[in-house]
Amino acid sequence: MAATGTSRRGRSLYRWKEYSVGYMFLLPWTIGFAVFMAFPIGWSLFISFHTVAFKAEGMEYTFVGIENYRRVLAEDSEYSVKLLLYFQEVVIMIPLIILFSFLVSILLNQRFRGRMLFRALFFLPVIFATGQVLMELFRQGQGDLPFISQYGLEEIVASAVGVQFAAPVLGVLSKAVIILWYSGVQILIFIAGFQTIPGSIYEAIRIDGASPWESFWKITLPAMKPFIGLCTLYTFVDMFTFPFNPIMELVSKHMFLQKTGYGYSSAMAWLYFAVVLVMMLTVIWFTSRSRKSG
């Protein structure tokens, strides 16, 4: 009896010792995260159930229940439409970005002369990540592809995919430029991912008589699965938190409007967030499932 008691205490002591190292490494980040991420996010949830008035002595909260959410859904005509359109667009964009960056990174992973230069060039979009440069370009009208209107592409697309899908498809086409410029980090992740596959495996499978095509399907793709998942998630986050996306613009616009205010815009953000989260969890679920089976 006593023996099991000590051993259990010994075990828990050992475990605590093992755990404590992890805690030490995690501690600085956790503090920062709690103060500057978790707490503000919780606060904004709290605010979304209130109306906020800025008074001289501070902020005044009035509890209104789900009134803000109801108004966003029922009364705001702009919100639902923009949300729907943006989702349509993103659902098309994400696979395109992943596919494009995966292909480019495979090409860049080959051995050829000047590949360092090419890699550097394809990572360049990373430094437009903050959007200032891109916005400047759009302001100048250089971001669009002029041939879309020139060659009457709109009608062709509309007749090909049907009128109701024409708008998102055209949106994607006109944003081909963005797809290119948004794949910087993804290409980077993929190439870094390729480096984790040791060359000896490829040698071994080649000696066994596998073609490059087979070795791609049997070795590269399974080994890259976690990175594909990572990239998908990253693209997801990137697209949805992009400060110039129509929803974020709407949220920021309402933040300081007299009629709607901070509570209303928080409710907007949380609704948006809920939808995005459901989509993201689906992606995570899929990738974790494929990882298990793969």
């Binding site: 995260f33 103060v35 500057f36 991420m37 978790a38 707490f39 503000p40 996010i41 606060w43 904004s44 605010i47 902020m59 998630l233 986050v237 949805f240 938190t241 400060p243 974020m248 949220v251 920021s252 933040m255 901070y262 815009s265 928080s266 953000a269 967030f273 995005v276 989260l277 993201m280 995570i284």
Partner: peptide, 19 residues
């Protein structure tokens, strides 16, 4: 972490200011 990834800085401006 996954949850907070989705939160753009714009939406938590005011709580952050208060902190």
């Amino acid at each position: 972490i996954y949850v907070s990834l989705m939160f753009a800085a714009e939406t938590v401006q005011i709580p952050r200011y208060l902190i």
